[in-house]
Write a protein that binds this DNA or RNA. Sequence first.
RNA 1: GCCUCGGUGGUGGAAUUGGUAGACACGCAGGACUUAAAAUCCUGUUCGCCGAAAAAGCGAGUGCGGGUUCGAUUCCCGCCCGAGGCACCA
Length: 925
Amino acid sequence: MEYAFRNIERKWQENWKASNAYKVSNESAKPKYYVLDMFPYPSGAGLHVGHPLGYIASDVFSRYKRLKGFNVLHPMGYDSFGLPAEQYAIEHGIPPAVSTDQNIATFRSQLDKIGFCYDWEREVRTSDQDYYKWTQWIFLQLFDSWMDRKLQKARRITELITSFELEGNASHPCPGEKNLSFTTAEWLAFSEKRKAEILMQYRLAFCGIGEVNWCEALGTVLANDEVINGVSERGGHPVVKKKLRQWYLRITEYAERLLAGLQTVDFSESMKDMQSNWIGKSFGAEIDFELELLDAPAEGKKLKVYTTRPDTIFGIDFMVIAPEHELVASITTAEQSTAVASYIDYVNSRSERERMAEKKITGVFSGTYCKHPFEDRSIPVWISEYVLAGYGTGAIMAVPCGDERDFKFANHFNIPITNIIGSFYDGTEANPTKEARLENSGFLNGLLMSEAIAVALDKLEGLGIGKRHTNYKMRDAAFSRQRYWGEPFPIVWKDEVAIPLSSAELPIVLPPMTDLRPGPDAQGPLANLPEWAAYEGGTREVNTMPGYAGSSWYFLRYMDPNNTEAFCSREASDYWGQVDLYIGGTEHAVGHLLYSRMWTKALFDLGYIGFDEPFKRLVNQGKIGGDSRLVYRIRGTKQFVSAGLKDQHETDELHVDVSMVDGLDLDMEAFRKWKPDFAEATFITEFGVYKCGSRLEKMSKRYFNVVNPDDIVERYGADTFRMYEMFLGPVEQDKPWDTKGIEGVHRFMKKLWRLFFDVEKGAVMTDATASDAAWKAFYKMLKKVEEDTARFSFNTAVSSFMIGVNDLTDLHCHSKDLLAKFLVVLAPYAPHIAEELWVVMGQAGSVLDASYPAVEEKYLVETSKEYPVAINGKTRTTLTLDVNASQADVEALVLVDPIVMKWLEGKPPKKIIYVKNKMINVVLG
RNA sequence: GCCUCGGUGGUGGAAUUGGUAGACACGCAGGACUUAAAAUCCUGUUCGCCGAAAAAGCGAGUGCGGGUUCGAUUCCCGCCCGAGGCACCA
């Protein structure tokens, strides 16, 4: 009887579906375990063999946990809103809803063939009304909240209003407009519209004015990467910066908690690192400098800078403010006005991309000076694009001897440089050290810079001209898109005030549209539906939410997917709690992961869930690369030369479809039929074989190196495919796909099958109990497989299975008692064959619900062990010793060993090192 | 430039706490079975030296150069290379 994997796998997939084998209940006496995959965007390309890597790992782990007695939640769904579907619609006229459904159907059929244990009754799609209703609802909660910085907790807007009515905003400085300050009386006197404006500056989801790339010719907003050299990537039309009303999430208010929370989760170092770099916390001071302006009001006389190095304050040679700084106009003197105006024009003409690409040293003197707080000297104030408006105060104090950028700027504009670090500064480059002793630095003279920071801060604070300040690089997250295929906002504008719709009106359904051209005035396509946008004397918000809105909370919906009363009941989220294991790629390091962490914290603050970090443990699966095949066409001909001979000709390299190549050997007939261009191709072969070149690169359609899991499953079966993906190498590592290697795993499956069935003899299983040797081999394997599975070392677990089967084959073990246990251990990796053999063997129930065998240590006890014997650390021989051998026993035996004696040459050894269970080392004199 | 991770046979990789480097596979070579093929099985396979061959032996060896240690793929110092992330963040 052969291993008929196709029949077996089809049979069990249907069977499990019919019996609801993977249905998960929220009520269970078992401990819970939540295993989550990052859900896919259902692209038109379908899955290639790289995608399921993480899914297989999480599936193996889920099944393992289930066998270990856990109630395991392991769901799957689709992140189905997004740009590609919209672009596809524009190009092909197929509505996003239609193409998305088709794509999902393809994904589902591919996933089903691999035999995952998802509970499909919990599937979510972010573009479903029943789902995005709750995305909109959560948006309303964020809109209705503000961050109480003292409590570090989001609170309701009504509580903020109460506080304003009692004491103005004295206790709660405005996160938006920093200088905003008002009393109770002033608050009460504000118009309703002004009140709304002020509250908007506090909301966690808020609307504000932001700069976007606007292309008039295309009538649309472009992302930064769609703009090249100031013109649109498509069509080369001019692009200008335009200030537009945009929605944002005030994620900066969570910066500190997002940073602190990283200490409590099990993410990789690099992942934590990427997130904390993105948050970019720094400590320093904001310092006020008095501007030497003749006729300015007292308020306008201050220039506020941010610095992390207040110790260098005596080294200031000039000040720099960003071109967008609000003081630019008021500090520009008459003499400099022309120069400044042309500089500002120049800056505005440069796109973000150009600014990043070519870092030219540019700037202009404003004509104004400010006073040094401790010395009698005037400091020129310059304007330059190297200072960013959005970070700190948009103004810096420049210390050229200690800062490279300041140094280059000073050199470029011939500004004299003050040296405050003596020999640490050599005049040719800046030295950012903190280890120098300060010179030319007034009250800081003689202090080590690292110590002077605190001294300077104390002095500045004492004088009331500076304040300790913490800064973050992270910006508030843009939350609106001028697009169609996303969640509509539950917001109506009336008299320029954003009015939230009530929860009862949700969902705000995305109206069907076929023409997805952008609306007027940089609005999304929805603006073209005035009858939809009109709402009781107001106008609906016509922009939509970005792709990350729906993915920020999907893990909660899986817990309670059909709830019509809430996004997820508190009972459900209390039961399932945090995601115990989250598997996905690193590409979402600073996007999705930060957003979902923020949403979780907000929902926690508002009392909707009981935990404030969504993912307890994160594992990042590596990418599987494609192994491309190349052919070489002799330039200007239709003749192709084999890789080994290509150096004899001038050739052009072409990618060929990997499916036409066996190893490196090209199927020349298939190649001729592949494309009309190649129909008349001729070949210069090596002994009749055309050898292709190969290269590892990204798996992509354009390299023709995409391998579809469907083809692999059809040829070798899902179990082989699953085990092979796991066998390839550590899950977290990037690695190339090599279809040839799968043969080894498939051989293993067949060898395993032969423990149960012989091709001629049929069933070979016996009721006789297994030998001690077989049990020993089995328990050794079990121990290793279990340890390896638990630590996500799936590749070594697979090799342990191979060793186990090799051993049992050598021992001719066909005992049912042992093999039944074996199948349970195998089931997480290869569920179909395990279930088939389990049932054929006459075991009760399903192997999916069996209980994981425990290691019986008695079979693993050794009485003797073969020790390596090293001479001076180099292994020369082995010696079999009783496990309880003492140092004296060992020495006695070692000294009479012929090989050791040869090395000793009659002299006594200096030392004999014996480490029990490890090794013996003889140190020569 | 900064941060993180990595570098082991022809290939993917193993060695979990400093203790027999190369498990398990792929590939390759040779062999068995077969009319033949497929399938299956067996043997060998880090490199070099010595040898007709086998056995045995010797030397080198985990990117490079040092160090600690009886002993280093593993720990420390200094480099080189690769991947990813960030990047005028004051």
